[in-house]
């Protein structure tokens, strides 16, 4: 069965890149544009792994991760943070919010797939 990935990113460019990369790698992809939509989509999506941006309008990545971790049903889903933020402080905040791992931009398909493989069985 195809693994399902939920991606949350406000940039149309990055969303498209994620979509192409993930589809090519044989994943089923569901997309949301910000944290609020991400949490809305989560319920029906039942993803195997989540990839999220940090800087987003309405609800940022930190808030989104916390939201997922509070959700009784999905709190154990691995969440990868996709971000250009490199300083340790941001990464730490993401970890404290409950991120499983991270992928540092610039966007690199190989890195993305590798990270997803690492956190999924």
């Amino acid at each position: 069965m195809k693994k399902k990935v939920l991606t949350v990113d406000d940039s149309r460019t990055i969303r498209n890149m994620l979509l192409v990369t993930l589809n090519n790698a044989g994943f089923e992809t569901i997309q949301a544009e910000d944290g609020v939509e991400g949490l809305e989509v989560l319920e029906g999506a039942n993803p195997d792994v989540i990839v999220t941006d940090i800087n987003m309008p309405r609800l940022d990545g930190f808030g989104f991760i916390e939201g997922v971790r509070r959700n009784e049903k999905y709190r154990a889903v691995p969440i990868l943070v996709l971000t250009t933020e490199s300083d340790a402080e941001k990464k730490n905040r993401a970890r404290q919010a409950g991120a499983t791992g991270w992928i540092v931009k610039p966007f690199d398909p190989a890195k993305l797939i590798d990270a997803i493989e690492r956190v999924t069985a």
């Binding site: 406000d10 460019t13 890149m17 800087n55 309008p57 250009t84 610039p106 966007f107």
Partner: peptide, 17 residues
Amino acid sequence: VNAVFRAVHSIKGGAGA
């Protein structure tokens, strides 16, 4: 301020790719 920051941040992210 956030929106301004995000705009530049987004451009940087895409440009990097």
